[in-house]
Write a protein that binds this DNA or RNA. Structure first.
Length: 492
RNA sequence: GGUCUCGUGGCCGAGUGGUUAGGCAAGGCUCUGCAAAAGCCUGUACAGCGGUUCGAAUCCGCUCGAGACCUCCA
């Protein structure tokens, strides 16, 4: 069905993608914990997987894309003294936990929509799947992979190791892990330091709690993904994605839970998107080194010199490979924005191209398009895809002087494919066309009058008058473009 | 401290055992009343030191530097 290759973290190799039940593809991505606003780093991860989702669809797959909302809150740490993050924030703001969840879920959706990310097929919540999580615990208990201690249930690494390797995803050995384990207060209930909680008995101050056979408590933080991916995609499915920081321990534990409960690890391909850094440091809610994706659109941040369009930001992100660390800076974003605008302008030229020249051009359209596909097939190499789009720009420019380059149908074909790659695959919405049609119409008519006036001034060589018009418009963000066929304008 | 990843031209950022990534910036030119925009041309890089090889920036070792994970985090 395709020649897509994906880098699988489990095997550490580039593997040809073969869907388990083509043309259906099951894809699970770890979603956000909704106790605060998503930051730009989170956004990058979700846009990376949006790119994958879009490309799989582009290839003709029918994708069921499941991305969870973690609304049950996780422990602060693995100790009994741990506090539910959502409950903590709720007390801080004097709000109900679910009020916090609602607020930040809506905020998350707004950001995803603003950046033109396609919604997942299913967006299950952890609190909506407590029953499934408890069923999973029961299964693990029955099979001996878990044990109960003082109302809490833990996953037993020692039992697991008798049948399966642990650490295969993150490439860690048990010895390494044990060396790195800290002695925390309250870990005494665990039989082994690497055991992790499946169910935690709630402390009195814990607000979010559910009754269970073991205690009134709440599920462990690795459990929801195992429960929900199994429920909606089956015990074996195609792709599991998430941020690089989730590889260990979250995905490692998830994998162990899956294997313990079903015998299957879950996904056949484990994908990890790399971090976005700010000032060379990882962006994280907990350290305050963050950038709000909405601030980029308004320019309201100490890190920004101006506002950017969502498309420019997406373009910036896709100019780097999803498995590379990308460092954010205002100047890097500005550079990306310029290139992005040039690309859009080039497509606009193609749209307005008169039907002249031969039917077929000399430019090798097929080879170019194949190179675009090849780039994406190589583990979603969007930087190379974008480089190819710039190659097309050169052909379009050459065609302006010599219509033999693209030809009439060649030009149409190229435009169609560029739109597919830009809009459909890279998710760069044609933003300037969609919104404010009424304003656009009004501005166009006003500008035609102004440009007409200026043209008259130029014809009489009244340079001071024509330049004054140009300067005034420039102050308002309108750039006048003088060309051989008269003047036009664009918004800065 | 342990595990791992990375270090590319002024900046961002792909890729690769022997052939131009691309973008931004810069310089030159074309166009232009001037400017802007646009187009064309130019740049010869791959942390350092050794090694393997006919040949390495690409493989191996060491050194230096950066980052991630080991603890909630996309």
């Amino acid at each position: 069905m395709s020649n897509l290759h994906l880098y699988d973290s489990l095997t550490g190799a580039l593997r040809r993608f073969e869907a388990l039940n083509a043309p259906h593809v099951g894809m699970y991505v770890c979603g956000p914990t909704v106790y605060s606003d998503v930051h730009l780093g989170n956004t990058r991860t979700f846009l990376s997987f949006d790119l994958l989702f879009r490309y799989l669809k582009h290839l003709g797959y029918q994708v069921r894309y499941v991305r969870n909302i973690t609304d049950a809150g996780h422990l602060e740490n693995d100790a009994d003294a741990g506090e539910d993050k959502i409950a903590k924030k709720a007390r801080l703001e004097q709000l109900e936990p679910m009020e916090i969840v609602q607020r930040y879920t809506l905020g998350f959706h707004a950001v995803m929509q603003a950046y033109n990310a396609l919604p997942p097929s299913i967006e299950p919540t952890a609190t909506g799947h407590i029953v499934e999580q408890m069923e999973l615990i029961k299964k693990l208990l029955a099979d001996g992979y878990a044990y109960e201690a003082k109302g809490s249930v833990y996953f037993s690494i020692e039992t697991y190791l008798q049948n399966h390797p642990y650490g295969e995803l993150s490439g860690r050995s048990i010895d390494d892990l044990e060396t790195g384990t800290r002695e925390l207060e309250g870990q005494t209930d665990k039989r082994h330091p690497l055991d992790f909680a499946l169910w935690k008995k709630a402390m009195p101050e814990h607000i979010m709690r559910w009754p269970s056979p073991w205690s009134e408590g709440f599920p462990g933080w690795h459990l929801e993904c195992s429960a929900m991916s199994t429920k909606y995609l089956g015990s074996e499915f195609d792709i599991h994605g998430g941020g690089m920081d989730l590889k260990f321990p979250h995905h490692e534990c998830e994998l162990a839970q899956n294997k313990g409960a079903t015998g299957h690890g879950g996904a056949r391909y484990w994908l990890h998107a790399n971090m976005l850094t700010l000032n060379g440091k990882r962006m994280a809610k907990s350290t305050g080194n963050t950038l709000d994706p909405r601030d980029l659109l308004t320019g309201q941040s100490e890190h920004l010199s101006k506002a950017y369009s969502p498309g420019a930001v997406r373009f910036f992100m896709h100019q780097a490979h999803y498995r590379s660390v990308l460092d954010f800076s205002d100047s890097a974003l500005q550079a990306a924005e310029k290139g992005y605008h040039r690309l859009l302008a080039s497509m606009q030229i193609l749209r307005k191209r008169p039907a002249q020249g031969p039917e077929q051009g000399t430019w090798n359209f097929g080879e170019w398009d194949a190179a675009c596909t090849e780039a994406m097939n190589q583990d979603l190499n969007s930087p190379i895809l974008i480089a190819q789009l710039f190659e097309a720009t050169k052909a379009i420019a050459a065609d302006q002087n010599d219509p033999k380059v693209l030809g009439v149908s060649g030009a149409k074909e190229l435009l169609g494919r560029m739109e597919v790659w830009m809009y459909e695959v890279l998710g760069l919405a044609p933003e300037h066309q969609a919104n404010n049609q009424q304003w656009q119409k009004a501005l166009d008519s006003a500008m035609s009058v102004v440009l007409d006036l200026r043209q008259k001034a130029r014809e009489t060589k009244n340079w001071p008058a024509s330049d004054a018009l140009r300067d005034t418009l420039a102050e308002g963000g309108i750039v006048v473009l003088d060309g051989p066929e008269g003047s036009s304008y664009r918004l800065e």
